[in-house]
């Protein structure tokens, strides 16, 4: 981390306190898990956790950038539903269609995201509202397209979800590489720095003549692209897409971002925190599974984590 953060150590420690807490929690959960079940300790279970977290990691990555600018992308859930339904619907079991459809899906995700960005810039409406509206529109469209699971994918397609390279799940490796690239972008590209500046003080960014529009288009476009990736991955995992595939991802994608220490008000945070957040949540669900806790309570646990995380990270309240 040293190489990535030239901020003085004291400030850096203070800034990253939360991330350290998350990392510590991760370790504690691992130890705890190892105690409660022998099966937990197996390599296959650990790989399983990585595998399960891939979809969430992809969506949360895009979400992190949107939140860093002080915005949010609430259309991710519907977007995933639409894109994954289209993926299996258009491939319709034909091997020859896999590549063109995959490319098309990624482009479509990018395009929808750019639409979000354009609306935010043109209408001057808060991203929350724009993406909420977009979410409803996309949900309607996907239901127009199909009311249930659509089409199918060739069996070889689930290689993406279950395949391995060098014994590691493809998805997990891909995630690590992608997160690293985005982290480098945020740190070393001018546009990456502007993402932080816009999130820190949007009016100031305008006064400074920073390319706010380009930042917005990049961020929401990227979030859409990530949804495309997630949709393809999830279709591969479940072998078919249906209009509610993405339903839970809207909230779920925000949780790891907040847990990972990115401020909802923008300007502070990063993608590594998000990745830790993703692993923490997947690990927690895994441990709860081993403890035979029903999914209902897992839902409660997740809600409580969001509440805890946002109240911990909230910046000191100003009283005047």
């Amino acid at each position: 981390m040293t190489a990535l953060a030239p901020i003085r150590l004291s400030s850096r420690l203070r800034a990253n306190q939360g991330v350290l807490v998350v990392a510590a929690l991760l370790v504690i959960l691992l130890i705890f898990g190892a105690f409660i079940s022998d099966r937990f300790r197996t390599t296959s279970n650990i790989l399983n956790i990585f595998e399960q977290s891939t979809g969430l990691a992809l969506v949360s990555l895009g979400q992190t950038l949107a939140i860093l600018t002080g915005g949010i992308d609430l259309s991710v859930g519907s977007m995933i539903s639409l894109l994954s339904t289209l993926t299996s619907g258009l491939i319709a079991g034909k091997v020859s269609m896999v590549l063109p459809v995959a490319i098309g899906i990624l482009l479509l995700g990018l395009l929808i995201g750019i639409c979000n960005g354009l609306l935010i810039i043109w209408l001057r409406v808060h991203p929350l509202i724009v993406t909420l509206g977009m979410s409803a529109v996309l949900q309607g469209i996907v239901l127009l397209y199909s009311l249930g699971p659509a089409g199918s994918v060739p069996p070889s397609f689930n290689f993406l979800a279950y395949g391995k390279v060098l014994g590691l799940p493809i998805g997990a490796v891909f995630i690590l590489v992608l997160f690293l690239l985005v982290a480098l972008f945020l740190r070393y590209a001018r546009l990456g720095r502007y993402i932080y500046a816009v999130g820190d003080d949007e009016v100031g960014a305008r006064l400074m003549g920073l390319p706010r529009a380009r930042v917005m288009l990049t961020v929401y476009g990227f979030s859409g692209f990530c949804c495309g990736l997630a949709a393809i991955y999830l279709t591969s995992r479940f072998s078919v897409g249906q209009p509610y595939t993405g339903l839970n991802y809207t909230l779920a994608s925000i949780t790891p971002v907040v847990v990972g220490g990115t401020l909802l008000s923008g300007g502070k945070g990063g993608v590594f925190g998000t990745l830790l957040g993703v692993y923490l949540i997947s690990l927690l669900n895994n441990v709860l599974n081993f403890m035979d806790v029903s999914t209902h309570y897992q839902l409660i646990a997740q809600g409580l984590i969001v509440i805890a995380a946002v109240s911990i990270y909230v910046e000191k309240k100003k009283r005047v």
Binding site: P6, I7, R193, Y196, A197, D200, G204, A205, G267, K268
Partner: peptide, 16 residues
């Protein structure tokens, strides 16, 4: 001021 509180002094100076 048009300063970005979560950026460093150096980053603020050279922003843009």
């Amino acid at each position: 001021f048009v300063l970005f509180p979560h950026l460093t002094v150096a980053e603020n100076i050279y922003l843009g």
